[in-house]
Design a protein around this nucleic acid. Sequence first.
DNA 1: ATTGAAGTTTCCGTATACGATTTTTGCCAT
DNA 2: ATGGCAAAAATCGTATACGGAAACTTCAAT
Lengths: 234, 234
Amino acid sequence: MRFAVAPDQPTGAPSQGQIIRDELLGRLQRGEIGIDDRLVDTAVAAEFGVSRMPARDALKRLVHEGYLEATTRGFMLPRVTHREILEIFDLRRLLEPRAVALVAQAIGTPQLAMLEKCLADARHATRLGNTELMFKASERFRNGWIDAIPNASLKQAIQRYMTQVQAVRMLTFRDPANHPLIVDGNAALHEALARRDAVAAADHILRFVYEGERAYLAAVKADLKHMSQTAKSA
Amino acid sequence: MRFAVAPDQPTGAPSQGQIIRDELLGRLQRGEIGIDDRLVDTAVAAEFGVSRMPARDALKRLVHEGYLEATTRGFMLPRVTHREILEIFDLRRLLEPRAVALVAQAIGTPQLAMLEKCLADARHATRLGNTELMFKASERFRNGWIDAIPNASLKQAIQRYMTQVQAVRMLTFRDPANHPLIVDGNAALHEALARRDAVAAADHILRFVYEGERAYLAAVKADLKHMSQTAKSA
DNA sequence: ATTGAAGTTTCCGTATACGATTTTTGCCAT
DNA sequence: ATGGCAAAAATCGTATACGGAAACTTCAAT
């Protein structure tokens, strides 16, 4: 057993396809890819300066992970239906309380500090009325605690519906009245995590999800036209 | 609209990669691929009479689905870690009770009959002591109720870890003492579903998962040598 | 103006080829 | 005989090219 050269990464260098996939996933999770953007393998390949193969690889993988949908005309965001959104709220109520409970028991001080930073950013943005910043900070907060989930399988299950959650989030964020609710929800969660209080954390996230569903339904009601677009897409 | 040549599948023809993937998945699920078999893209491609690309496609997809593991020297069965298996039991306890509860409210008579058939098959196989048949029947039963989950997102989340469940299942099935427990658990679940009793169904599946975890831990204990192979792999 | 059909474009799936990396094999020196 | 080094083989990742299918566009006829 020779450790002479230090094994660096366990798997050596990540492949181009992997790199592209990670980058695209980041964009998807940051909401940088819109509902009617089309991702075409040749374009992606050109952007990353590689051939179609790694690009195709990344795209197909994202499809399989549920982040994209393969059409005969490129790869697009999956059209989320109203029904599906409600289904995902159901899923979230099943998974996320347990997840934050585990996080409360496992999270480290630096991660807690990071979450606190996100929270402060979100507060600041709210005071400024800057929806964009608020959105980003809240997203970082969410990604932060999801990253801290010690059960990798559970974490993965939650991350699968992240993009759909993003889409819904974007919708509800449009009403600034929701911003304080979101900040307060996150603050309550953070406080519970800081106290390592698994029960309180689970309660808070559950309430938060219900609150999110309520806000979503309100947004849909206030904006029927936009919802009908998800069906017509025109 | 010309149906002269018969359009075969509604979605056009499935790609070669898809075909290969399905066939390989069948072999994997039938246990026809051993722990130290290596699947190499060129060999697979040659067998199916195509180029490397569709074969690679199928292999990579199976990797992503968790059925295979990519090594620097071909694709092999994944070494599932003990930790991962326990994580999945945790996930199952979160998701499956709700899933069967929804099934209890939504399942139709023909599907119920199908489940009953699987149950009868499993009973028969148990009496015969035929592990193989018993395994198949139990698998059909499980796939049957999973198919009936009305919440598509939840269904998908459950299906994601099906392979790992299969692997564990394979392990616990080796002890015939577990067979009656499995049949009884399935029978109890079926009975609850037949009565459209969501609460009882959820209780039964929860108990069933706990029972499965117990059986798994017992199997590991009884078979430490095999488990240590997952680390050494030699 | 609307509709239908033919032509064009776009894009995916697959084939073949090449370079890089890792593993294996063979050989030589001690 | 054993250990190490170098050559060879195996296999993966990527590049490029071709054929076909779906969608879009154009244009003419009603």
